[in-house]
Amino acid sequence: MGALLVGLYVFVLAIFVGFEIITKIPPTLHTPLMSGANAISGITLVGSIATATRGETTVSAVLGVIAIIFATINVVGGFLVTNRMLGMFGGKRKR
């Protein structure tokens, strides 16, 4: 259970870090924050890569490859769409 406890410590502390950072966000950036955070949740991609290594058509490998596709859509799409939105916010402070 040692690993679980360490994981729990990390989990709880990270939640506090998240709360501390995000409570300061201005409403203007709510959408980019959400889609950016959304892209970060695609971190599960790391897990899916580890499970898709066998290169066979076993159930686990197939699930892993589908997971890679799903997570990559989340990651690439999420970061790009956030980048697009933020591009519109920048460069026109005063008109």
């Binding site: 870090v17 998240g18 959400m34 970060i40 599960t44």
Partner: peptide, 19 residues
């Protein structure tokens, strides 16, 4: 047993909850 996933997931979980 991957702390990076735990941390990143917790950050997103917290930000979603605040919103």
């Amino acid at each position: 047993g991957n702390n990076l996933l735990i941390i990143s997931g917790a950050l997103v979980g917290a930000s979603g909850l605040i919103l």
